[in-house]
Design a protein around this nucleic acid. Structure first.
Lengths: 140, 140
DNA sequence: CTATATGCAAATAGTTTGCCTGTTA
DNA sequence: TAACAGGCAAACTATTTGCATATAG
């Protein structure tokens, strides 16, 4: 039975996409990688406090922003609700099930290129696309 | 030269989609209908103050929410920025040009049904779809 | 030793709420 | 006259910032 966590996770690289992986960033990243629930900053905070009791919410925000800026995770926004974070870097959308409050990744059907269906002005450089759906997942 | 606006705009119906069109809601709605710039609540507020000097920002928020709830206008959110409001009820997306800060409606190419390209779970009832793009509109 | 990251508390900004008054059906 | 809408200020909440300390290259 271990009483203390090691200072660093051995399987965690020192850097991801040029971002130095400090202990706090490691915990944030590790937690997100194992989650499909698209947690909020506060949920990440609550969870990694178990491993890092002194971590602050501001640091969690800083870590999340650093990871987003370095394309390690994605930030997902639903209306005016708190931002959520997603480890899935594939191009995909998000479905917000109003009944349960859960969020599901939505893939595109194979062979679909999103820009093909949008009537974009010429010479447009798209940096990011966000597709969010809201509705209900009826019981089958 | 008119010195005062009439109490109500003659061309404005008393009700839209079951929503009673008070003087404040009329001004908010009329302004939005003539705008393609997707104004924020504060921009609406600044503008309709010209016609209604005593209007309050809270009332503008209330009017906007009432209009959104009754499907008279749409609310558009970009990341964590202030909500914007759009009089275009057709299914469409929004492109945020980072260079100018402007927002453009993006139509879908003809014959495209959005749900056709999404790999949705069965029995899903979609209430709302939001597509937002961020990027740059290069000078042609 | 210099830059960067953390922790904490305070500040910020958009939005909402409470309460009282005014208006409308 | 009962329900709803408006105006104002205060409250709320997610997020950011300033600053002092700690850590890393």
């Amino acid at each position: 039975m271990t009483t203390h966590l090691p200072q660093n996770h051995p399987e965690m690289p020192e850097e991801i996409n040029g971002l130095r992986m400090t202990r706090q960033r490691q915990e944030v990243y590790r937690f997100l990688m194992g989650e499909r629930s698209h947690p909020t900053a506060n949920e990440v905070f609550m969870r990694i406090k178990e491993a890092l009791p002194n971590v602050s919410l501001a640091t969690v925000y800083n870590c999340l922003e650093a990871l987003v800026q370095h394309n390690v995770i994605r930030q997902v926004n639903f209306d005016r609700e708190p931002s959520r974070y997603c480890p899935n870097l594939d191009e995909h959308g998000h479905f917000h099930d109003e009944t349960t409050g859960t969020i599901h990744d939505i893939k595109f059907k194979p062979g679909i290129n999103l820009t093909d269906i949008l009537d974009l002005p010429p010479n447009t450089v798209i940096k990011d696309i966000e597709i969010t759906l809201r509705g209900q997942l009826a019981a089958s």
